[in-house]
């Protein structure tokens, strides 16, 4: 199962809901304003790091670069491009968007 999140973790609780209601072994892809959740040293970094112990976390690189966050991404979060996004969707049996 692939979960996508596209809202800033500081503005909406979409990320928190996703982390709460996703199962071990799933993939979580952070896109658009949710890529801020992929950066280190923030108030939600610990939640992401905890989730990474049992889930695969990805962030969309074009969105990371656009926001000037490329130097701040947490180690272990995989940055993918649009082609990687497509592969991820194709590889998973279903996708849920947390808007």
């Amino acid at each position: 199962m692939l979960h996508t999140v596209n809202k800033s973790p500081f503005e909406k609780d979409s990320l928190a809901a996703c982390l709460r209601m996703s199962k071990d072994g799933c993939a979580i892809l952070l896109i658009e304003d949710a890529v801020y959740a992929a950066t280190d040293g923030t108030a939600v970094s610990d939640q992401i790091k905890e989730a990474m112990k049992t889930k695969s976390v990805y962030a969309l690189k074009p969105d990371v670069d656009a926001r000037g966050m490329s130097g701040k991404v947490i180690d272990g979060i995989e940055l993918i491009d649009y082609a990687g996004f497509v592969s991820l969707v194709a590889d998973q049996n279903s996708t849920q968007s947390w808007l």
Partner: peptide
């Protein structure tokens, strides 16, 4: 989140 507006090093070519 408004502080993100004035972060440096942005590159929007990809989006």
């Amino acid at each position: 989140d408004g502080v993100y507006q004035i972060v440096k090093g942005t590159d929007t070519a990809g989006i």
